[in-house]
Amino acid sequence: MENVATYAELGKYLGAGLACIGMAGAAMGVGNVAGNYLSGALRNPSAAASQTAMLFIGMAFAEALGIFSFLVALLLLFAA
């Protein structure tokens, strides 16, 4: 019985750590958005200013999924 609880504890930490891998995806996504924005802006600097709003919207969407994985990690650590 005690072993079960210990393993559950172990699983929680492992799961939290694994959930953090999801942040890598969000990082790549946000980097992709910013990088593509930059390369587009360098090609056509006059259009860059009008597209910053789209940059932030895209970053927000990409980042939200990373936040979800972070949330899963937190839930496992503190609330499970």
């Binding site: 969407f61 936040i67 979800f68 972070f70 949330l71």
Partner: peptide, 16 residues
Amino acid sequence: VSHSIRLAGNLLAGHA
């Protein structure tokens, strides 16, 4: 869901 968790999660993560 994403609208609220994005905001809360960003701040929660940074402060933690």
